Simulated scan of single mutants.
Amino acid sequence: MPSHHRVRPPLSRRGFLTAATAAAAALASEPAWATTGSGPRPFGRHGSPTARLTPKTLYVHPAGRGDFTSVQAAVTAVDGGGWTLVIAPGTYRETVAVNTTRTDMTWIGAGDDPRAVVIVYDNAAGTPKPGGGTYGTTGSATTLVQADGFTAHRVTFANDWLRADHPGVSGTQAVALKVQGDRSAFHHCRFLGHQDTLYADTMALGVFARQYFAHCHVEGDVDFVFGRATAVYEHCHFRTLTRTDLASAPYGFVFAPSTAGTNPRGYLVTRGRVTSEAPDAFYKLARPWVPSSDPTAHPSLTVRDTHLGPGIDAVAPYTNMSDSFPWQDQRFAEYRNTGPGAVVTVPGNRPQLTAEQAASATRTAYLGDWRPWKRGD
């Protein structure tokens, strides 16, 4: 984990509940709750500090000052939909799974910053499982969300598995979050990993899932934002990491969408920024993922109104994952991007939307009648 991560001193039970109530009440006042078509209104404005915010609110505290000491224990305890978890500052070293029956669940980090609430584990695709075999990419996920209507505020999702610590493991995919549900929203969250950090996907081929990420931070190296979902990334920061195991470019790829061919829209990145701690031009912006399970996939990615730093290869920002599915045959496009990584030096290497086409590349077009954003975003 980053050395600057700090956890606040433990609060008393009353102190934690008071802080959690205050944090929750602040979120309750945001227009997002009033404009979202579904999901709970989790927080009232009255009641004593130790009172439940709603009958479906649970408190998670690592030192036992809430209802549960682990996030998974709280998830397991709930029955049906509409529950809210208020999670105290701390590092929760565990894997968490939210299955399809736990719909319209909300997680709220009770700290002022997403760095205060960290859910982290260290499985990789090649990590041996206790019963034999390995976890695979999906099984490596620290947090798996399959339920519809999931929302998270100010939480860090991390996978701290490192290649250097496991030189004999070839399956280096290590997912921090895999999210498959429709109407999944993440506000002011962080996603930390290396390869395959954020897996924005769907439950199955032919099943569509809309996802929204606002004011989030995502970091990694290889294909660290990938999957089949219809996802909007707004005001997000994508950070590419340096690598000590490679001596030459490319170090990796930011996006690897695997959009189903029947889905008109895949990933939309808007009003964001891409920075790097690696040498200039050592990263590609994207490559298309056409998985063996869906050879008809037609990956879709639009990056618009986004600052691309010098870490992105401006001459050739896209490349192939497989020569059988060249990136030029996919749905990759840009519009009004800025920064040294956005300079168009070879026009054929970076397709640009026209103004007319850009008018249809909006969050509303991608997400339809679902409105998860706040006023002013």
Rank of each mutant, 00 (worst) to 15 (best):
S3A: 15
H5T: 15
R6D: 14
P9V: 05
R13L: 07
R13E: 15
F16V: 02
F16D: 00
L17Q: 06
T18G: 05
A19P: 02
A20T: 04
A23N: 05
A24S: 13
A26E: 13
G37P: 10
G37W: 01
R41Q: 14
P42G: 06
G47H: 05
L53Y: 00
L53C: 03
L53M: 12
K56R: 15
L58E: 05
Y59S: 00
V60K: 04
P62Q: 06
P62W: 01
A63C: 07
Q72G: 03
A73P: 07
A74N: 07
I87Q: 06
I87M: 08
G90A: 07
T91G: 06
E94V: 02
T95H: 11
V98D: 03
R102Q: 13
T106W: 04
G111Q: 03
A116I: 00
V117N: 06
V117T: 15
I119G: 05
Y121C: 07
D122W: 10
N123K: 13
A124C: 12
K129S: 11
P130I: 01
G131R: 11
G133F: 04
G133H: 03
T134I: 10
Y135N: 04
G149K: 02
A152R: 07
H153P: 12
R154C: 08
L162Q: 15
D165Y: 07
P167R: 05
T172A: 12
L177D: 02
L177T: 01
K178A: 12
G181C: 05
G181E: 02
R183S: 07
S184A: 14
C189H: 01
T197P: 08
D201K: 03
T202D: 05
M203I: 12
A204F: 14
L205Y: 12
R210W: 03
F213L: 09
A214M: 08
H217L: 14
F226A: 05
C236T: 06
F238Y: 12
T240L: 01
T242S: 15
R243M: 07
D245G: 08
S248H: 13
S248E: 13
A249Q: 10
P250K: 01
Y251F: 15
F253A: 02
F253H: 11
F255K: 00
P257T: 01
G261H: 04
T262S: 15
R265L: 09
G266A: 04
G266Y: 08
R271F: 09
R273N: 10
R273K: 15
A278S: 10
P279Q: 09
D280V: 11
K284N: 11
K284Y: 04
R287W: 11
P288S: 00
V290I: 10
V290M: 02
S293Y: 13
S293R: 09
T296H: 12
T296S: 13
A297F: 00
H298V: 00
S300Q: 02
L301Y: 03
T306N: 10
H307V: 13
G309T: 07
G309A: 08
D313W: 01
S322V: 07
S322F: 09
D323P: 07
F325K: 00
R331H: 11
F332N: 00
Y335T: 00
R336C: 05
R336I: 00
N337E: 08
N337C: 14
T338Y: 08
P340Q: 01
P347N: 01
N349F: 00
E356Y: 12
Q357R: 12
Q357T: 07
A361G: 02
L367F: 12
G368I: 09
D369M: 06
R371I: 03
R375W: 07
